[in-house]
C-alpha cells in the first residue's frame, strides 16, 4: 500500500480513537493505552479537550430536558452535607524504580504489580512480551521489547491494533516512530514495522482482536497467536 494512503488512514484512525476516548466509548484496555499516550502528548490532550467540548455542547443543546422526579432535588440536597465530609482522599502513588526506569507512564504502571523484574516471554526471535491483565475479554494488552534491527512479521489486523512507542524507535512503510507516538492500525492496513537498528524498540500494544499474519510466516504462526 502506498505510504500516503497508509498515512491518511492512520490519521483518520488516530482522531477517531481520540474522539472515542472523549465520548467514553472505548474499553478499559484501549482507554489505558490512550491515557498513556495523553501523558506523553500535550498535542493529543488538546484534541481530547476539543472533543470533550463537543460533548459539552451536545449535552447543553441537543439533550431536550426530561423532568426529574419531584423529590430528586430534595434527595440530593439532603445528601450534600454528608458528601462534603467524605471527600475522596488523594491516592498516594507508590513509586517503583523498575517501572520508572522503563519510562512507563503512570496509567500503565498502575496495572503492573511486579516490582523486581518482569517475567518476559519470547514470542518470536528478537521479540519478547509481557502481558498486562485488564477486565477486557476481547482486547489483549502487552508490552513488547524488540531487539535492534528485528523485522517483525508482516501482519494485517482483524480488529484494531494500537501501538504506543515508549522507548527506542521503529519504522515502517509510512514513517519512523519514537517515544510518545501512537500508531492506530485497523483491518484496512497491512504493515511490517522494523525496530531501530541501534536502540531497538519498547512499546505498549493493544490488540482488540487476534491479529493475522499475512506472509508465509503467518501460516506457521497464526494458530499460535490466536490462542
Amino acid at each position: 500500500m502506498a505510504g500516503k494512503t497508509v498515512a491518511m488512514i492512520a490519521k483518520q484512525n488516530y482522531e477517531a480513537l481520540l474522539m472515542d476516548y472523549a465520548a467514553g466509548t472505548l474499553n478499559e484496555a484501549q482507554s489505558l493505552i490512550v491515557a498513556s499516550h495523553l501523558t506523553l502528548s500535550p498535542f493529543a490532550r488538546r484534541i481530547v479537550e476539543d472533543c470533550e467540548a463537543i460533548g459539552g455542547s451536545l449535552l447543553d443543546c441537543q439533550c431536550d430536558p426530561i423532568a426529574m422526579k419531584s423529590d430528586s432535588l430534595a434527595d440530593v440536597l439532603d445528601r450534600l452535607e454528608s458528601e462534603q465530609e467524605e471527600k475522596d482522599e488523594p491516592v498516594a502513588h507508590s513509586t517503583c524504580e523498575m517501572l520508572d526506569s522503563m519510562k512507563l507512564p503512570r496509567p500503565v504502571q498502575n496495572y503492573i504489580h511486579e516490582t523486581e523484574y518482569l517475567p518476559w516471554k519470547k514470542v518470536y526471535p528478537g521479540m519478547q512480551s509481557y502481558e498486562i491483565k485488564t477486565k477486557c475479554r476481547n482486547s489483549k494488552v502487552r508490552l513488547l521489547k524488540i531487539d535492534p534491527g528485528t523485522k517483525t512479521p508482516e501482519h494485517s489486523h482483524a480488529g484494531t491494533e494500537i501501538t504506543l512507542m515508549i522507548d527506542g524507535a521503529a519504522h515502517d512503510e509510512s514513517g519512523t516512530y519514537s517515544r510518545g507516538d501512537l500508531i492506530v492500525m485497523d483491518e484496512r492496513i497491512t504493515h511490517q514495522p522494523v525496530a531501530d537498528e541501534k536502540m531497538g524498540c519498547f512499546c505498549l500494544v493493544v490488540n482488540s482482536d487476534p491479529i493475522r499474519l499475512t506472509g508465509w510466516m503467518g501460516k506457521i504462526l497464526n494458530p499460535f497467536l490466536s490462542r
Binding site: 482507554s31 490532550r45 485488564t134
Partner: peptide, 15 residues
C-alpha cells in the same frame, strides 16, 4: 463495570 484509565497530572512522566 471497568475502569477508564486517565492521565495523571502528577505523573513525573507527563510531557
Amino acid at each position: 463495570k471497568m475502569s477508564r484509565p486517565e492521565p495523571d497530572p502528577n505523573d513525573p512522566m507527563m510531557v
